[in-house]
Design a protein around this nucleic acid. Structure first.
Lengths: 154, 154
DNA sequence: TCGTCACTTCAGTGCCGACCGAAGTGTCGG
DNA sequence: CCGACACTTCGGTCGGCACTGAAGTGACGA
C-alpha cells in the first residue's frame, strides 16, 4: 500500500511548521507557510486554508494578518468576488533570514557597551572580551556572506 | 549626581538578560550569565547569586543546572566547604552561536526533502526552489565563516 | 549521631500566548 | 435596502513555562 504524494506533503508541512514553531512562529502560521509553498494552484482563500489545515477561521485570519504583515504572504483582492486570494511571497523569505542574522549580530552592541563600562579594568573585562570577540567576528563576516546571496532572492 | 559603575552594570545585565529572553533563555538564566561575565571576583555561590539577583534559591538552582548542562557555566566544588562556586565558561559561548547557525542551516534538510517530494513537477516546485536556494547558499557559506572564528574561541 | 548548612526538588501560583468559535463588520449582488 | 457571504474581532479556554518557597536530600564538622 503506497502513500500518496499529497499525504506525504501534509506530513512534510507538519514537520515544516514544527521547525518554525521552535523559532516562535505559531503552528498554524507555519502550516500556512508550508502549505502555500507547495499547494496547486498557488492561491487559496482564507476559507480554503481553514478547511485544508483544520484550523478555525479566527486563527487563520490572525495568522494570515501576521504573515501578510511580515511580507511572506501576499493578499490579492478581486473585483466582483468577496473572497481574497492568498499566495506565498517566496522572494521575501530572505528577509526572514536577514532578521535572524541581524539578531545574532546585534548582540555585539550589548557586548560593546559592556566593554565600555569595563574600560579601565582590563583584568575584569577579560571574560566579556572573549564573548565580544565572537560577536565582532560575526559582525565582520556575515555582511560579506550577505553579499553573496543567490540572485533569485533579490 | 553620577551613577555608579555597579548600578550601570546591573542595568546592563538586565538588558543582556532581556535580549536572551527573546531567544528563549529564562530571564533569571540570562541574568546569571550577564552577572558572571562581569562580577568581581569571578566566582559566586548559588546563595550569593540568589541574593545579588533577587531570585529564589529554587530558580537559581534550576537555571544554574541548565547553564552548567549547556557548558556555559562551570561548577567548582571544594573539599571542606559545602558551597560550590560557579563561574562563567566563556570559551563555550561559541557553542551557543554554533547552535544558532546550525538551526538556520538545518532548514535546508526540510527544503531538500520537500524538493524531492516535488520531483517530476518543476512548475509546482518553483516556490519551494527559491527558498531551498537560500538555505543552500547559507549551507555553503557559513562553514567557511566558521573556520575563521577567532582563536580565543578554540 | 546530631545539627547545620547548601543545594535540589516539587507542588502551587500566576502569567502569557495560541487557539476556538460566535458575534460583529463590511462588502457584494440582487 | 436586504440577504448572503467573507473576513475580523473578541471573550473565553487551555496548556505550558517561569518562578516561588517550603520541604526534602545529602554532605559536612562537632
Amino acid at each position: 500500500m503506497s502513500v500518496g504524494r499529497e499525504t506525504r506533503l501534509s506530513a512534510w508541512i507538519e514537520r515544516f511548521a514544527a521547525h518554525f514553531a521552535e523559532e516562535g512562529i505559531p503552528l498554524i502560521g507555519g502550516r500556512i507557510l508550508g502549505y502555500l509553498l507547495v499547494c496547486q494552484p498557488t492561491e487559496r482563500t482564507a476559507a480554503e486554508l481553514s478547511q485544508e489545515l483544520e484550523a478555525s477561521s479566527g486563527s487563520i485570519s490572525t495568522n494570515l494578518k501576521f504573515l501578510v504583515n511580515a511580507g511572506l504572504v501576499t493578499k490579492r483582492t478581486r473585483r466582483g468576488r468577496q473572497a481574497a486570494q492568498y499566495r506565498i511571497n517566496e522572494k521575501r523569505w530572505v528577509d526572514l533570514i536577514q532578521r535572524k542574522l541581524d539578531a545574532l549580530v546585534s548582540v555585539r552592541e550589548l557586548t560593546e557597551s559592556g566593554m565600555r563600562l569595563m574600560s579601565g579594568d582590563p583584568e575584569r573585562a577579560m571574560r566579556l572580551r572573549t564573548v565580544d570577540d565572537l560577536y565582532t567576528w560575526l559582525a565582520t563576516e556575515l555582511p560579506a556572506v550577505w553579499d553573496r546571496r543567490p540572485p533569485s532572492s533579490r
